[in-house]
Amino acid sequence: MPANRAAWRNVYFYDASTGAALGGVYQKGSLTETTLIWALNHVLLILEDYCTIKHRASGRLITLSSNPVVPGDYDIYSKGPIKVSDEAWIFRSISHSVSGPEDIFRDKVRARDGRCVISGVVNATAEWGSWAGYEAAHVFPLQHENLWIELDHGCRITNKDSAAQSSINSVQNGILMFRHLHTLFDQYLFSINPDDSYKIITFSPNNLGIDGRILDPICRDLNNPDSVSDEVLRWHFRQCVLANMRGAGEPIFETDFPAGSDMMATLRAEPYGKERFEMELASRFVDREGEASRV
């Protein structure tokens, strides 16, 4: 069964007028009051007017500040009813494989970043062409290219690269990171908030040492036309807020399928299982087509 994001929360939100639970979040330390106010008013809740947020134990109203959110229960006050948003959450495929047009994407992300931009660790073997352990991650998932086109996310890409067959494979939609961090990034367990000095915020207990770090500037140099798009980073951060803070939270999917394991049985038992299985098959079919075309 998928892991439960709500299980490790240490911050909880309640409708002050009804006592109904609205959601919550795990605070590792880097989530600020300003970010919480934004998340509740602009992402998580449907309100007639801005809400007021009170820490129940202290009676303190939170303010637009860089103060870290204190763990505990919070009561939400607002004029009129408070409803939880039904904004779509976009789940991602479990695949890390790349081929065909994605080779260009990978190579450009490697050339620009040269390091894991989350941890800041430089790839010391890059000059010999070894990138073991490092992966180029799409910020907006490649598996949802149809949605990318439908929502005109291509307008977020300012450097139109004729070498890329689709703007979703633009280097501006990618960042380089360690493989294990790529898995967590795809599961929406951490993200980058470009509106809080590019701070990295984690949404689950961990010993990764990345919570509160700042995204390495090498990938976001405004003088570089290949810099990662702030807009796609905002999209990913918003998805993390939806996945981790709304209601009971979204499922965390199994990603480890060694040889001989029954992937289909696992997917059948998970939410979005049918959709994920179809996406995985489609991505593998595209990979094989790409390999065949290069033979």
Rank of each mutant, 00 (worst) to 15 (best):
I104L: 12
E127L: 13
N123P: 06
A124Y: 04
S97K: 15
V109T: 08
A124C: 01
R110Q: 12
C116S: 11
I118A: 06
T125H: 14
I118F: 05
A111W: 03
G120E: 06
V117M: 05
A124H: 00
W128F: 10
W128E: 15
D107A: 09
N123I: 02
A111F: 04
E102F: 06
A124M: 00
R115T: 01
V98L: 06
C116K: 07
E127Q: 10
A126R: 00
S119V: 03
V109G: 08
S119M: 02
D107M: 04
V98W: 03
R115L: 11
S97M: 13
S99N: 11
W128I: 05
V98M: 01
V109D: 10
D103W: 09
V121Y: 13
R110T: 05
S95N: 14
W128G: 13
R112D: 00
I118L: 09
I118K: 05
C116N: 01
T125I: 00
R115P: 04
S97G: 12
V122G: 00
G120V: 04
R112G: 02
S97D: 15
I118G: 02
A126L: 08
P101H: 11
A124F: 00
A111E: 14
P101R: 04
D103R: 08
H96N: 15
R110A: 08
V122R: 00
W128N: 14
G100M: 08
V117C: 11
V117D: 04
S97Y: 13
D113W: 07
E127H: 09
R106E: 10
S97T: 15
V122Y: 06
I118C: 12
R106K: 11
F105G: 02
V121H: 14
I118Y: 04
I118N: 03
V98I: 12
T125L: 09
I118S: 05
G100C: 02
T125S: 00
R106A: 11
H96R: 15
V109A: 07
D103E: 13
R115V: 07
R112W: 02
F105I: 03
G100D: 13
